[in-house]
């Protein structure tokens, strides 16, 4: 049975993913810039998967390794996007 703190953990993850998913989807449609908001959209998907694993109390290291690795890619993708949008990427 899922514990109280596991529920808090999973719920906070789910709430964050809903907020990100919702706003990034709207922005993608509204501004018609899918690739720019895609990393946030993907991060919401990763968060949804993570919260599902938490709700089922699955904390297997090997599964979580692949759930955490995308964050590195997503954040760097965001840095690249920020550089492009900012109009000046120095390298």
């Amino acid at each position: 049975m899922i514990s109280f703190w596991d529920t808090i953990f999973a719920s906070s993850m789910l709430i964050t993913s809903i907020i990100i998913f919702w706003i990034s989807s709207l922005k993608m449609i509204d501004k018609k810039r899918i690739l720019v908001f895609l990393p946030f959209f993907l991060s919401a998907i990763v968060l949804v998967f993570s919260s599902v694993l938490s709700f089922y109390s699955i904390f297997n290291q090997k599964i979580w390794f692949f759930m955490e690795i995308p964050w590195f890619i997503i954040v760097f993708w965001i840095i690249i996007n920020l550089g492009r949008e900012n109009g000046r990427i120095r390298n």
């Binding site: 290291q61 090997k62 979580w64 390794f65 955490e68 690795i69 964050w71 590195f72 954040v75």
Partner: peptide
């Protein structure tokens, strides 16, 4: 196994 993804992030 646990540290690598977190350190990369």
């Amino acid at each position: 196994y646990d540290d690598i993804p977190d350190l990369l992030a």
